[in-house]
Structure formats: C-alpha cells, structure tokens
Amino acid sequence: MAITRVAPGIVRVERQPLTFSQRLYIPQILAGMMVTLGHLLKNLVNMKRMLIISYPEVKRVYSERFRGRHILTSREDGTTRCVACFMCSTACPAECITIEAGEDERTREKFPVRYDIDLLRCIFCGYCVDACPEDAIYMTRDYEMAIDTRARAVVGLRDLVVPPNFPVDPMGYRPYYGKIQKSGTAGGTGVGQPLRQAPFDDDTAPNPELYRGGNA
C-alpha cells in the first residue's frame, strides 16, 4: 500500500491502479496460491505446531481467571462459607441468584438454606465474586455446562458446594488479592479457623497497591 502524508498526523492511503501483469489475472492468482501452499507445507512439515485444538481430546487451558461455573467454598469444618448476606444476588445484573437464609443455632450464624443459581440466566460477569465479602463464591474454569433440560440449569447447594480442601489455586475467577496460601483459608469469620492469622502470602505489608496494582 502506498501512503502519502497529507498533513501532520494524517496519511492518505493511495488507490493503486493494477499494472499490466496484475491485469493478466493468472500470475496474481498463482501468487495467492503460493501463500496458501506455503501455509499447507508449513503445516505438513510441522504437524505438531498446527494451531488446531482437537477438543475434547485436547482441552484448551484457559487462564486462571477464567469465569466459568460457580462453586461455593467451605470452611475447614465443612460448613458453607456463605453467610447468606445477599451481596451477590444484589450485585448480579441478571438477578440469577436466589438465596434463602437460615440461622445456625449453635453459632448464631446465618447460612444459606437455599442457594440457587440459574445458569441459563447467568452472564458470567463475575460481579458475584467481586461482591462476596466472605470469600465464598468462586468461578471455576468449567465451561462444559450444556444440559438437556431447562429445569436442570438451576443449580442448588448440592451442586455448588465443594469440600473444604478443594484445590482452589488453579481455580478460576476469584476475589483477587495476590497469591493465596494453599493451605490457609482466606479470611472470614469461619469456625475452626485460626483467628488473626494473615490469610495471604502477600499480606505482610500494609500496602494497598499490592492488591489492586503493582506486580500482583
């Protein structure tokens, strides 16, 4: 492409008429074929580097922030970390979260009796994760959610809650604050959790930039 500068900050892309050899049509078709042939040969010689992902035998590894299906994490004693504060359902633009709260008689703590996410309504924006003050809801890297009945798209506590030692590190979109200690739990008022222990690796200096910027 020929480019002429017409003014500072403005360039004009010139229209180029076809030359005689280009008007002959065949040579340019061959030149184009050479490009495709080059690609073909490159792929034949180096089959392994072909850019195809043969799903489902090979699965693309999405980043650790991938926003897929949700899970509800548990405390170490096995209770759900969620305290039914309704933050996630308030922040949800799709209003796809339904919560009913109950109270634990022993600890006087709220917990969800019912926690339904309508996966079909959900737009996977991650606002519920951002809104959670209890580190309870995460999004996994699970994108294989196709189902054959609409009713089954509403997932409840039974499908959402994961056991306490669920490996969260390669998980998916989760509240972002630097690196999580693998064995530790991440804050909250959990029963059985050592109190006042710094929950995060990076949580040693009172530097707010560490969490929202810098080299997290």
């Binding site: 799903y55 994108y143 189902i147 009945t149 609409r150 798209a153």
Partner: peptide
Amino acid sequence: VDIWVPGCPPTPDGLMYGILKLKEK
C-alpha cells in the same frame, strides 16, 4: 429445544461440548 448451552457467550469448546452432547443424545 434439545440442548441448552449456558454462558454469555459460551466458549467455542463449551458450544462444541453441547454439540457432542446432542450427538450422544
């Protein structure tokens, strides 16, 4: 509808999973 694929939008592999699910069906 035979298969419902959640996601907004579903990833291409998520949709492919839906197609495979339909195949199975």
